[in-house]
């Protein structure tokens, strides 16, 4: 049987969901028998160059680069799975949403108590921030959502094995958590 092609990506968040994915421990040996990784920070592959079966994304959408990469994931992945609080709700980064963006930036880079000679970063290399941090579904269609901060390895394993077997993931009470 041909291996499924899997890509993973991360937007605004802490990378904890990818860490949790690695927490599937020895089951990773089972996984490599079943899948081949395309674009992913795990293999450091930067671009898509073939159709992907399952895209797994973590992190919220907070800047123009996130927008571009998320759209690329949607365009290249047959099934797109958002994992973790940030991808599903904006998560901790979205706590800035109740404060105007300029105020956030000024506090962080200009007026904060530990800042000396600060300025709001404006290097053209930096992606421009969105006014608010958004869940991925605010921008593209998401097929499956696995909550958690991060989702437990068991929850991620259930999601992955279900999708590889062609069934709907079913999370147990212990696996469906927001924290």
């Amino acid at each position: 049987m041909a291996k499924s092609i899997v890509a993973t990506g991360h937007f605004t968040g802490c990378f904890g969901c990818h860490m949790s994915l690695l927490d599937i421990d020895e089951r990773i040996l089972e996984l490599v028998e079943l899948v081949e990784f395309d674009k992913s920070p795990i293999n450091d592959k930067k671009e898509f160059d073939r159709p992907v079966d399952i895209g797994i994304i973590e992190g919220g959408v907070s800047n123009e680069e996130n927008v571009e990469v998320l759209r690329a994931f949607r365009a290249n992945c047959r099934i797109l799975v958002a994992i973790g609080a940030c991808a599903l709700t904006g998560g901790v980064p979205a706590m800035r949403n109740t404060v105007p963006l300029r105020e956030c930036l000024e506090e962080a880079f200009v007026t904060g108590p530990t800042v000396v000679d600060g300025m709001i970063p404006n290097d053209p290399e930096l992606p421009i921030l969105l006014e608010r941090v958004h869940p991925c579904r605010d921008l593209v269609k998401i097929d499956y959502e696995i909550p958690g901060c991060p989702p437990s390895a068991d929850a991620l394993w259930e999601a992955l094995s279900a999708l590889l077997e062609g069934r709907e993931p079913v999370l147990s009470y212990e696996q469906l958590k927001y924290d």
Binding site: R102, L105, I120, I128, L130, E131, H134, D138, L139
Partner: peptide, 19 residues
């Protein structure tokens, strides 16, 4: 379609960074 005004949010972000 985006559930928010992407253009306006990017304009706000650009303005905040003076870009």
């Amino acid at each position: 379609a985006p559930q928010f005004d992407l253009g306006a949010e990017l304009r706000a972000g650009a303005a905040a960074a003076n870009r």
